[in-house]
Nucleic acid binder design. Structure first.
Length: 938
DNA sequence: ACCGCCGGGTGCC
DNA sequence: ACCGCCGGGTGCC
């Protein structure tokens, strides 16, 4: 395939039709969950504790008045929403009542409204309503209200009500969580309230959720479908299944989940809402296959295969395209006297797609000025006709029948999408893919909606939207299809990017994610809301009908969720089977450990550093200050690990043991920053002791412990006024937290490598020996040489050059453009392409594909075995043709050997830990201490 | 609303 | 009668 070039971009634009840019902002009215008030940043999580820990205070019968002034209708037993209306000109206490659809039904009678106003405004409780009977009344109808809130607010709520002469009744038998699963002819019946039900822990939930998918592995989703002609790659059986499922979802006319047709009305069996018009199902869903099963490829196949009425996307055949280009080039040749023309893609922007293609130099010379003018004149007329017809043909797709698919992905996988489009689109077809990224992105909606595919990132989308909701080009277009890659990115409903995504318009909607649920069911809301499944687009209905029943363990709650998931999700894991065969048959993967013995000199340096460090750490132990010196200890270990690799790595020995008192605040800050950088760069892959995930937005405390900023803020908030460090119980204050200054080079020792003369090391010798042997065996075998220390990789470059190896390099510090080049270069099978890639352990996102390599040399062990495994998976994945052999170099009698032992322990833990609970801070502390002891032989 | 409430009309039986 | 009672007008917040 080829990229939309400037040749096309320069064509006059004949399409001037005005579009009706309508905006459909998500209903934002339900903010009474008590969750909007507190938010500590974009990381999802803590802000909704309130709703999860809500209890039912009791119920109250009231009345809805003014029915005849509004159009909203309800059924008996239908849920209604209560919404404050502080700007009502007649009563500042007014409380509106809306039906599930958001149409106003009436108001709460004023005396009751006066009592509710304070409760609702101060978020003391969430008030929910159901109309028990009298739904057909003309003037007023009853409403059964239930009050939910946190335990500590219960008294305040009861007092407020009492002041206005109201008293809550205990939870009613007849009122619960909506109707039962299937309602009978006599109207729905209700499940008993489940106040006593046990709240599920996050872990229980997670394992429950994993069960959700078990049943849908071998469903009726086993139909296969071939991709259209323009798909240049043969699909694997499970991908054909996914394609068939996606196509059927897009062309389906089924009712959405939980809707039933009953005597010409459509009922939602969860809320009892009814409408005359058939509710629309989402033409799309969630593709939740495990990583590596080819979600990207399947999606590309979908784009090419299912355009309209089940027909493939009418992509341009490359031939006609070439003719047009040819004429256009001639015209340019004349007009601008160009003899060399580069067709530079106008969409080649930051991520650095190498889509610059050199066209043949055409040294054309015309004789005679008149002839030239004549010829070019004719060509110009021809082109006008040509483009006019093309433009009018495209216009057909631009209004009600859009042709464009919008793909939104994290920046880290943007280049992967570009590669995959290139790889999987047949050579004979020209697919217009516009990369909407970079400061020079084209914001003309007419251009964007003429593409086949527009590819962008969550950040760009959120940025445009943040500047102006109404000028954001992506929001001016109604897309044929939107695909959210790594869709769980939008799990935080308060994040700007989530809001930006939710307000996009499209006919078809897809979410791709390997982990639809990261932490809890509430992660799903943004996804479901994006899919526009009524009535869940509104947080209140999602919460009342799904989230609360599930988290409170209401009977049927999980079943309800399962039913929802099942109807819109396809998920296969690496171990799933198609027709009895495993989905993926990957070649074998072997891990060898190659022991290395240090030379006498190396050993001496190592021992002396070890002796010194061990003494210091011993001192910390006897003083009981191990955790206070955690960063220092990591520093000692880091130096030892570096010495195992190469003596030159260990240059910044600026011993920071001198934590002595009389420092200026600035010195203290600098010291903390240094320590934090040490922790972050030590490759220890430190987890945040609060969330137990890897650090996001790391900050360091005065006691030198590193946490995620949002996590530690939450600790301080919840323990106020006197918060203490979760690890060492020292005083903790927001103003004492030090943030990590901009992510510059987080490399441990990136200094004076040039002024030192190059020397080898035992490990380098071992590597070179292995590489040269391998080359003798088979000179085309490609290898990854992996280290956590980029400086080490630089040192390895030298002997590689000397021995005549062609190599390339990929590390975290490289610009996106360079990375893409390095990857493409390495993956190429051309003769002379590099056979070695120097790879930093953590470089690249999950999508990084280095299947050209079948050998891996891991130069130094990682703390976290998962990080190693992830790295191996970059070549041991779909597309790998050979058995993969991994060689780990481990220095005998060193910290590295001890690290291996710890790795094994961690592996065992991870394997058995599926259903076990999260360890506490003190357990983490103990684990860390034990690790330190084991590492330094204490 | 086949109600409640309001306020004007009215006033023995 | 500074009441009761009647019956018409009226009706969310």
């Amino acid at each position: 395939m080829s990229w939309r070039g400037s040749v096309w971009g320069c064509l006059p634009n004949f399409y001037t039709g005005e579009r009706n840019y309508s905006h459909n902002s998500p209903s934002e009215f339900y903010s009474s969950l008590g969750s909007e008030g507190f938010s500590i940043g974009d990381t999802s999580g803590t802000d909704e504790e309130d709703t999860d820990s809500a209890i039912l205070y009791g119920t109250l019968r009231g009345s809805i008045v003014g029915l005849r002034y509004y159009t909203g209708v309800v059924n008996n037993n239908e849920m209604v929403a209560l919404q404050r209306e502080p700007n009502n000109p007649y009563d500042k206490n007014a409380v509106k009542v809306n039906n599930v659809n958001g149409d106003q039904v009436g108001h709460i009678k004023k005396e009751l409204a006066a009592a509710l106003a304070g409760i609702m405004d101060n978020k003391l409780a969430v008030v929910e309503g159901v109309v028990p009977y009298g739904a057909k009344n003309v003037f007023t109808m009853p409403v059964q209200m239930s009050f939910w809130g946190r335990e500590e607010n219960k008294e305040a709520v009861l007092d407020q009500l009492k002041m206005h002469g109201f008293k809550l009744a205990p939870p009613l038998k007849e009122y619960g969580f909506g109707s039962k699963w299937i309602s009978g002819k006599n109207g729905p019946t209700y499940s008993a309230p489940v106040h006593a039900a046990v709240h599920l822990t996050a872990e229980q939930l997670k394992s429950e959720f994993d069960k959700l998918f078990e049943d849908l592995k071998e469903d009726d989703k086993t139909c296969e479908m071939e991709g259209a002609e323009a798909v240049g790659t043969l699909l694997l059986p499970h991908q054909k299944q996914a394609l068939a499922w996606m196509v059927s979802r897009e062309n389906s006319n089924d009712l959405p989940p939980f809707w039933e047709e009953r005597n010409n009305f459509y009922y939602n069996i969860l809320t009892n809402f009814a409408v005359k018009e058939r509710p629309k199902n989402v033409l799309g869903g969630i593709l939740a296959d495990d990583m590596g099963l080819g979600k990207t490829l399947t999606t590309i196949a979908l784009i090419l295969t299912n355009f309209q009425d089940g027909k493939p996307l009418p992509v341009e055949k490359i031939t006609s395209d070439k003719i047009c280009r040819f004429f256009f080039i001639i015209m340019l040749l004349y007009e601008k006297s160009l003899f060399l023309l580069y067709e530079e893609s106008s969409n080649t922007v930051e991520p650095g797609v190498s889509s610059v293609k050199k066209l043949e130099a055409i040294p054309l010379k015309f004789s005679g000025c008149h002839l030239k003018r004549y010829v070019s004149g004719m060509i110009f007329v021809f082109l006008l006709v040509c483009t006019a017809s093309i433009q009018s043909a495209e216009k057909k797709y631009s209004e009600d029948n859009p042709r464009t698919t919008l793909i939104i992905c994290p920046l880290s996988v943007l280049s992967n999408w570009i590669d995959q489009f290139e790889q999987h689109t047949s050579q004979d077809f020209h697919l217009n893919v516009y990369i909407y990224y970079g400061s020079d992105r084209n914001k003309d909606p007419a251009i964007l909606s003429d593409q086949d595919v527009v590819l962008t990132t969550y950040n760009i989308l959120a940025t445009d939207y943040g500047v102006s909701k109404y000028d954001s080009p992506l929001h001016k277009i109604k897309w044929l299809r939107i695909v959210l890659d790594e869709g769980h990115t939008i799990r935080n409903p308060n994040a700007q990017q989530t809001k930006a995504v939710l307000s996009l318009e499209a006919h078809r909607r897809w979410v791709l994610t390997g982990t639809p649920i990261q932490n809890s069911v509430k992660d799903l809301w943004s996804l479901i809301s994006f899919l526009k499944l009524k009535p869940f687009t509104d947080r209140e209905w999602w919460h009342r009908t799904i989230q609360r029943p599930v988290t409170m363990g209401t009977p049927g709650g999980l079943r309800r969720l399962q039913s929802l998931i099942k109807s819109i999700t396809l998920r296969r894991t690496k171990t799933s089977k198609v027709k009895g065969k495993p989905i993926l048959e990957l070649p074998e993967r072997k891990v060898l450990i190659q022991h290395v013995t240090l030379t006498e000199e190396e050993r001496q340096v190592y021992q002396s550093v070890k002796k010194e460090g061990k003494a210091a750490i011993n001192r910390f132990f006897s003083e009981g200050t191990v955790l206070a010196h955690y960063a220092d200890i990591l520093g000692v270990l880091l130096r030892l690990r570096q010495l195992c690799c190469h003596p030159h790595l260990c240059t910044n020995t600026s011993s920071s043991f001198s934590a002595a008192g009389n420092n200026t605040p600035e010195e203290l800050r600098q010291m903390l920053v240094t320590k934090m950088k040490l922790v972050l760069s030590s490759g220890s892959d430190e987890e945040c002791a609060v969330c137990l995930e890897s650090l996001t937005l790391p900050v360091i405390t005065h006691c030198a412990h590193v946490f995620c900023k949002p996590c530690i803020y939450e600790v301080i908030r919840s323990e106020q006024p006197n918060a203490s460090c979760p690890l060492c119980r020292n005083e903790l204050r927001v103003e004492h937290l030090v943030e990590c200054p901009l992510e510059e080079e987080l490399d441990s020792s990136n200094g004076k490598k040039d002024d030192q003369e190059w020397i080898s090391s035992s490990k380098i010798n071992a590597l070179m020996h292995a590489l040269i042997e391998l080359r003798k065996e088979n000179p085309t075998t490609k290898c990854l040489v992996v280290s956590q220390f980029t400086t080490f990789l630089s040192l390895i470059e030298n002997p590689l050059k000397k021995s005549g190896f062609a190599f390339t390099r990929l590390d975290g510090s490289m610009a996106q453009k360079k990375r893409v080049e390095a990857i493409q270069c390495f993956q190429s099978s051309q003769a002379g392409s590099p056979t070695i890639m120097l790879l930093s352990l953590k470089a690249g996102g999950v999508g990084l594909n280095l299947t050209a390599a079948s050998r891996v040399f891991l130069m130094d062990p990682a703390w976290n075995p998962a990080a190693e495994d992830q790295c191996f998976d970059r070549c041991h994945r779909l597309g790998q043709k050979y058995n993969v052999i991994i060689t780990k170099f481990i220095v005998k009698d060193s910290v590295e050997e001890n690290m291996l032992k710890i790795q094994n322990k961690k592996r065992e833990l991870a394997a058995g830990a599926f259903a076990t609970k999260k360890p506490s801070a003190s357990e983490i502390k103990q684990t860390k201490i034990n690790e330190i002891k084991a590492l330094i032989d204490l």
